[in-house]
Write a protein that binds this DNA or RNA. Structure first.
Lengths: 217, 217
DNA sequence: TTTTTATGATAGTAATGCTATTATTTAAAA
DNA sequence: TTTTAAATAATAGCATTACTATCATAAAAA
């Protein structure tokens, strides 16, 4: 994790891990706007000032959580596509992992990925939709997102080296997987997905979308 | 415009129109997070309390502006595709209008669309990415977005009545047009667009994406 | 002309987003 | 084992934000 995202490394201490765990839970419960360090402090039985020793402000914490998610999902993707030869199968696996609600990864005791996924879907883009985006980008806060995008872009080129927009298609896969999920649950008339929680329909849509354009060129 | 979005209709009074005009300018300048009614009041030479007579809070104002944008762009699309027969040409026109920075529409003196477009690109999704999305949706705050989505979905079906995901593809066109624009300007390594401000590259990408999948099915 | 309506001016309050200080506990170094 | 440093808890405080309320005045309708 990028050291400029925190003041004290939250993964190294008990309190730090409690901050991570419960901030995901509390953002899930309240939404990022109503989430405050004071409320978080109450939940974990610490103090506001205590949390400020780890994170400069709640926006940095959101960026940290988002970066953590993209790092983690990037690892999952690398790991699960590692021994796959066919780029087509790789891409399908990627679409699946990005679209489907995730089971808790037992490896990381301090973050519940099944809550992290909806948090990223609803709040993740707020990490970069700010006036500070360029400054934050210079500090490499979005590196895990960029790495994932690059990884997916390379699989796309493996499949079809003539395709002209591998990176844009990669970021489109990530974003579409997330906001179609949000729309399905909250603004369903913006989608064709009939049943809430049926993420397989998003997978079907994305597979059709992606392979249509990279099969053709 | 949905009457539940405001306390007093801002389009009907001079002060109201000043609120709209300068809120777009100030959100463009400061970003939505740093935008406050107090700052806006200073800019327009009124008071905080004066603005609260028009809008309950700044989030309602953002929803209003977003709804206004989608209403306006929906009208532009209807108007400019009105006499076009070919659904293919219609869709291309739609992609163009959604992707390109917009010249100020002289018809609407109180809103500068050339500023509104980047504001929607950067801030628009915050209008619905909240815990109140379902409650707000019940009050039809997002109707103009839904109407636009439905309009585009119908053009897609005109082109190919067998395509399975017209609404999801429609919302994808809208969202992709906006966030690829944001990425191009702020996180360019997430795209393949080499030159900032070259929205024609986004148009090319989207045309390829859209027609690939609806040509095939 | 009266009366409603919109605006301006001012005050005030609870919550938020911090910073600072000191005391206490915990853990590592000597 | 003692010393000392580091981490945490407890508390206070402050500027700003996000509102609400009140009252005076100006302009427009009745």
């Amino acid at each position: 994790m990028n050291e400029d995202l925190y003041l004290r490394n939250p993964e190294e201490t008990e309190l730090g891990r409690r901050i991570l765990k419960h901030s995901v839970e509390l953002i899930y419960k309240l939404g990022f706007e109503d989430f405050t360090f004071k409320k978080l402090a109450q939940v974990i039985g610490s103090t506001e000032a205590g949390i400020y020793r780890y994170f400069e402000n709640k926006h940095k914490l959101l960026i940290y959580i988002t970066a953590w998610y993209f790092g983690w999902i990037g690892f999952q993707i690398s790991y699960q596509t590692n021994n796959i030869e066919e780029p087509k199968v790789k891409l399908q696996k990627i679409i699946n992992l990005l679209s489907s609600p995730i089971e808790d990864d037992k490896q990381t005791s301090y973050i519940d990925e099944s809550l992290l996924h909806p948090v990223i879907v609803a709040e993740g883009s707020k990490a970069y939709l700010t006036k500070q985006v360029s400054a934050n980008n210079k500090l490499n806060f979005f590196q895990p997102y960029k790495d994932l995008c690059s990884l997916i872009g390379n699989v796309i080129l493996e499949y079809n080296s003539n395709y002209k927009f591998p990176k844009s298609l990669a970021s489109t896969i990530i974003e579409v997987a997330h906001f179609q999920n949000f729309f399905m649950h909250n603004l369903s008339s913006l989608t064709d997905f009939t049943r809430k929680g049926k993420e397989t329909e998003i997978v079907e849509f994305l597979n059709d979308l992606v392979f249509s354009c990279i099969d053709r060129n």
